[in-house]
Design a binder for these strands. Structure first.
Lengths: 232, 232
DNA sequence: TCCTGTGAATGTCTTCACAGCC
DNA sequence: GGCTGTGAAGACATTCACAGGA
């Protein structure tokens, strides 16, 4: 377990992939060293933040010079656990699941699709993005045989919790949930969610907010139907 | 502009849609009132947080009783600007764009697809999810004619900045970016990003981290190629 | 001189704990 | 008695500002 290292804050962890992507661009451009200032600009954050974030990985910069692109890339990939690929199983091959299966971006960035699974037997056997669809009941077997590390839930909300339970039962400890619902997992399992409509609703809030002062008065004549007894 | 209301923290805004979704479920179940405790459980957060979040909207609860589901739903929809639908234009009809166009979830939750646009003339004219694909050059016209409020960037990274610039030029002030790259917009424009591989990389970090102590030693014999002069 | 690495200051978010109202 | 609404405390995150090494 080597020497105990400073714990990396969650907010920093969420930015590391952005730096990684930026560093890959710099590497492609043959750039040898990069200052925190310029890296910050490219990554869309501020320079002090970049320096603090990178300092959690270790002192990998050189004062008066900057960071060595190759070396920082290496260290960051290691820290993110990206020195080898992680097989992904996509559960639910509807519109979204199929798009993810066809989307090359996962494999390119170290997360090849290792299996497709669906609860609908009518879909089992067909090919999507070069992968055959298996039945949900075969999940345990697939996870074990293909050394699958991450589960992606792309089912409707209604099935998501059961799928999560099955993924956990199959030994998966990393889950990405696209279903628009809260999914509970044991504390040793990591789960992250992506909810597309939720993002649009957040945008809607700010649009609404910004329109408020502009005479545009979107909802002006709405009369609230207050329930009795909640007048504060 | 009515009375000046307390500014709602960003972290709270991001949770409002989750409460909204939960309240819709409660409404479907005919539940009349709900306590912060139970709402918290359903939304996957803690009760004090729910109460504080809801208090930013106003004092809509009743002590000793809880919150009236219908009334809270109404107030929250209003605050989120969801009392009417917002048309969305999807730019880039590849795998992801097409999946989004076919995905009914947007329209269901108040964001109907108003137009599809692509830079590839070979795609122009064909139908995806019942919508005809137009050329990117017609963006201004489409946005104006169809009262489109939100732009979704579903292009490869390389084209994303130009698309964002065009959306802004067409008068769009809310953008959701799926392209894995940093996109800059003027400060009056709201932009949010969804990066699928980035989420997987974050999961990878925690997997890596948790594996460290378990004798599993994933990357043990890697020798770093340190650049000269960066030994601290 | 330049740019990193980091304490200290500031700002934001979460959680506690309880007064106040139903 | 039960549950909200909110000050206050505490945790976390960002930004400042500068010492110190290259």
């Amino acid at each position: 377990m080597e020497r105990t290292r400073r714990r990396i804050p969650e907010a920093t962890v969420a930015r590391l992939p952005v730096y990684l992507r930026t560093l890959l661009e710099l590497q492609a451009d043959q750039t040898v060293t990069i200052s925190s200032e310029r890296l910050a600009e490219m990554a869309g954050v501020n320079a002090a933040k970049v320096r603090k974030d990178l300092s959690y990985l270790g002192s990998y910069g050189t004062r008066g010079v900057g960071y060595d692109v190759e070396y920082l890339l290496f260290q960051m990939s290691r820290e993110l656990g990206l020195t080898n690929d992680w097989q992904v199983v996509i559960v639910g091959v509807g519109n979204l699941g199929a798009a993810l299966a066809n989307y090359g971006g996962f494999g390119e960035r170290g997360f090849p699709v290792g299996a497709l699974v669906d609860a609908d037997r009518a879909k089992v056997g067909s090919l999507v993005g070069g992968h055959r669809i298996h039945h949900l009941d075969d999940l345990d077997q697939l996870v074990a045989d293909r050394a699958i590390a991450i589960g992606v839930i792309a089912t409707p909300a209604i099935g998501a919790q059961e799928v999560a339970d099955r993924l956990v039962a199959a030994g998966i400890t990393s889950i990405l949930n696209f279903a628009p619902t809260v999914v509970s997992v044991p504390s040793e399992v990591s789960i992250r969610k992506v909810d597309l409509a939720l993002e649009l609703q957040i945008l809607s809030f700010y649009r609404q907010r910004d329109a408020a002062g502009e005479g545009l008065k979107v909802e002006d004549d709405l009369v609230a139907l207050r329930p009795a007894g909640s007048v504060n």
